[in-house]
Structure formats: structure tokens, C-alpha cells
């Protein structure tokens, strides 16, 4: 757990940020603003979608210690619902993304309620979420009228923001994606630094003790799950709008594995870690694409190397070395 001095420093700022976190956040904001001038905007948007997804996932695994193996279900269904409502109901892109978030919220409530009924070892939670996510996957494979099956849900329009601004230009789309990412990320930061977030960390560190202090830990876990799933749905819907397609790979269990990879390589339980991990994994997939399936092998090697040599992830190790809380 964080030391008392850091705790005190942590509550000083507006969002309850330590100084090092504020510097890091300013760096992130600068990257968001100047990034598209140097880097291909579609790549950046893709990376931001995954970064938000990983940050949401990190809220559960990093701060509550809940190991979900089925997060692809929320991300994927978010992208299907977001894409579907944008295409067939001609919803405003913001509303369509909100619909994706609502899907994550509903599914997260149901899945979380069910999976958290099983108290005790983390393995139960992991297997139940995995099983539920696999159910979602196979429903998506068969429900071709809704998901397009193997073809994916194609021809999702980017639409016009608030009915005014066309998002077909990548720059305009990028501004929307960056804004939503930042809002989602700051929401997570706020949650983590709130008294609620402190209880989550307490549950992670020693659940029986948190119970003995009078906390209804299941409620706390469920709420954290719901927040995480909602943001995952938002990230999924955003990706569908950006690329104009929602496909089966987003609900496939390998996507659940990928978000674990992002969170762990970046640094579980750190705020910036999942963002760094999201960028790293997307960059590998993007720039190493000519290698084809070898990308998966490389990802495996990176994962093994990460677990063996720096278990706290890139940001975790960096934080430990410098003494900053990131």
C-alpha cells in the first residue's frame, strides 16, 4: 500500500493527484494534442480505444484485484451495439458511443452480480467471467442478423457530431476520440483517488479486514466492475465508429487476453500503465503487421519477458525506480 506521506500528498490536488501524477498527466495531454501532427491519426485513435479499454480493465484487476477473463464481451458488445445503432438507427456518433457504454453497464451489472456471488479465490471469478464471455461470443457467431457473423457488422458510418460536424475527416474524428478517452481516463483517476477508491485498494490488500471494518465488499466490487465494464463498452463503440466495422475478434477470448497483456506490460495498479501498455501492444500490431502471425509470437515473448524480468510492468518499474507515483 502507498505510504502515509504519499497518501497525504495524494489528496492535495483537485483530482487528488500527487505531483508526479500531475506531471505525467500533463505529458499525456501534450501527447494527445501534438500526437496527430507526428503520428498517423487512425493508429492513434485505435491506440486510444485500447488504452481506455485497458485503463478500465486495470480498475478491476489493478485496484480491486478482480481478475476478469471475459472483458472482450463488454468491449465487443459495446462495439456491436454502438455500430448497429449508428448504422440502423442513424444515431449521433456520441449517442451511439453512449449506447455502447450502456451495453457495457447492463452486461457488467448482470455478469458482475453473477460472478461475484462466488466468494473466495480469484480463479472462480476468472472462470465465470470467461464462461459468460464465451457464451456471448457464440451468440455473436450465430446471431448473424445483428452481428453479421464472420463478416462483421460493416458499413458503420462515422456520422455527424451533434448533427453538425462531419466526422469523415480523421482529424475531426481524432478530436472526439481524444476527448472521450480523456474524459474516461480522468473518471478512472477520480474513482481511484476517491474514498471509494481507497476502499477498493483496501479490499485488494486484505478483504477480510475490510469486511471487519464494516464495508460491504461485494457492493464495492460490483460497482467497480460496472464502472469498468461501462468504460470498456464505450471503448468498443468508439472503435466501431472509427473503423466503420465491428467484428468477431472484438468478442473473441483472445481480446480478453490482449487486454490482460496491455495492462500487465504497462503496469497493473498504476494509472498510466494500461495506457502505455495499450499504445505498446497496438504499436506492435500496427508496425509489425508485415510479419503476419509472428506478431502473436512476439507478443508472447514480450509477455514472458515482462513477467520474468519486470513484473510490475513498464510504468510500475519506472515508478519504483524513481519513487514517483504514476
Amino acid at each position: 500500500m502507498a505510504s502515509a506521506r504519499e497518501e497525504a500528498a495524494g489528496h492535495a490536488g483537485g483530482l487528488g493527484l500527487s505531483r508526479s501524477e500531475r506531471v505525467a498527466l500533463a505529458g499525456l495531454a501534450a501527447l494527445l494534442v501534438f500526437g496527430p501532427f507526428a503520428i498517423y491519426p487512425i493508429f492513434l485513435m485505435n491506440a486510444l480505444c485500447f488504452a481506455l479499454f485497458a485503463a478500465a480493465y486495470n480498475l478491476m484487476i489493478g485496484y480491486v484485484g478482480l481478475m476478469s477473463f471475459g472483458h472482450a464481451a463488454f468491449f465487443g458488445m459495446g462495439s456491436y451495439v454502438g455500430g448497429w445503432t449508428a448504422r440502423y438507427w442513424h444515431l449521433d456518433p456520441l449517442l451511439a458511443i453512449a449506447m455502447g457504454g450502456a451495453t457495457g453497464l447492463l452486461m457488467g451489472t448482470a455478469f458482475g452480480w453473477l460472478a461475484l456471488r462466488r466468494q473466495g479465490q480469484a480463479i472462480y471469478f476468472a472462470t465465470i467471467t470467461l464462461a459468460l464471455a464465451q457464451m456471448v461470443y457464440f451468440v455473436c457467431v450465430r446471431a448473424t442478423g445483428f452481428t453479421g457473423g464472420e463478416d462483421g457488422l460493416q458499413q458503420v458510418p462515422r456520422g455527424r457530431l451533434l448533427g453538425l460536424l462531419s466526422l469523415t475527416s480523421d482529424r475531426a474524428m481524432y478530436v472526439v476520440v481524444a476527448a472521450i478517452f480523456l474524459a474516461g481516463f480522468l473518471a478512472i483517476v477520480r474513482v481511484v483517488h476517491s474514498p471509494f477508491g481507497q476502499v477498493l485498494v483496501a479490499i485488494r490488500e486484505n478483504e477480510p479486514r475490510a469486511v471487519s471494518l464494516g464495508y460491504q465488499t461485494r457492493h464495492y466490487k460490483l460497482i467497480a466492475t460496472i464502472i469498468s465494464c461501462t468504460l470498456s463498452g464505450v471503448a468498443g463503440a468508439m472503435q466501431a465508429i472509427v473503423f466503420g466495422i465491428a467484428s468477431l475478434e472484438n468478442v473473441h477470448f483472445s481480446m480478453s487476453g490482449e487486454v490482460v497483456l496491455m495492462t500487465l506490460t504497462g503496469g497493473m495498479g498504476t494509472l498510466l500503465g494500461p495506457v502505455v501498455g495499450g499504445f505498446l501492444v497496438t504499436a506492435m500490431e500496427n508496425y509489425l503487421a508485415p510479419l503476419g502471425n509472428w506478431v502473436n509470437v512476439l507478443q508472447g515473448i514480450v509477455f514472458v519477458a515482462c513477467v520474468l524480468t519486470f513484473r510490475r510492468g513498464i510504468v510500475g518499474v519506472l515508478g519504483a525506480r524513481t519513487g514517483w507515483r504514476l
Binding site: 487512425i42 485505435n46 473503423f243 466495422i245 467484428s247 475478434e249 472484438n250 500496427n286 503487421a289
Partner: peptide, 22 residues
Amino acid sequence: MSADHQQKPAVGAAIARRWIDE
């Protein structure tokens, strides 16, 4: 030039976009 779409529509579309844009 060549690339592998790995049998995934989303990957294929993303490569096409990158090829054309970048």
C-alpha cells in the same frame, strides 16, 4: 508491397486505410 490480413475483416480494413493514407 504486401501484408497479411490474418483472415480478419477489421485488420484488412485497417491495413487498407494505412496503405492509402500513409
